[in-house]
């Protein structure tokens, strides 16, 4: 790390870049793994995360990112494993209409539609 003495007038100093979820996705794809990418595509009522929030599930059930935690996420994870197995995308409707007295984060009261798709490294020219 540069100290004050290393700075010069008007000189631009760049901070290290933050690793994004796509960097991790690239690493998994490079290893030849198939991933399931789950994205919230629409919501109704109150939901824990916004439209566009993403969660990546690996074939081993590892999770990167979050679509809100709790029951909904567990359901999506289960479906995601299926998507990895079949390599066919699907849309899952997650209901968060739990009993209000429950401790689960699913008491938000909303509904979200989550699109889950398989991503894997393809040979050049295939599926084109």
């Amino acid at each position: 790390m540069a100290g004050p003495g290393a700075c010069h007038d008007d000189k631009e100093v760049e901070a290290p870049k933050k690793e994004s979820i796509y960097h991790q996705v690239r690493d998994f794809l490079d290893k030849g793994e198939t991933l399931a990418v789950a994205t919230i595509v629409s919501t109704k009522g109150s939901t824990p995360r916004e439209v566009g929030a993403k969660m990546v599930v690996t074939a081993w059930g590892e999770i990167l990112g979050t679509i809100g935690g709790g029951c909904g996420e567990a359901d999506v994870k289960r479906e995601a494993i299926e998507v990895i197995r079949s390599r066919k995308p699907r849309t899952v409707r997650v209901d968060l209409l739990d009993d209000i007295s429950s401790d689960s984060p699913a008491v938000c009261g909303g509904i979200m539609n989550v699109f889950i798709e398989p991503w894997w490294k393809q040979e050049e020219g295939s599926r084109r």
Binding site: A2, P4, C7, H8, D10, E12, V13, E14, A15
Partner: peptide, 24 residues
């Protein structure tokens, strides 16, 4: 003021500019 705007004080900043502020 380079004593104020430097990497030690602002390790997370993306860019640091030392010089006349209006001109920068």
């Amino acid at each position: 003021r380079i004593l104020y705007v430097n990497r030690e004080r602002f390790p997370d900043a993306d860019e640091i500019r030392v010089g006349d502020m209006a001109a920068t």
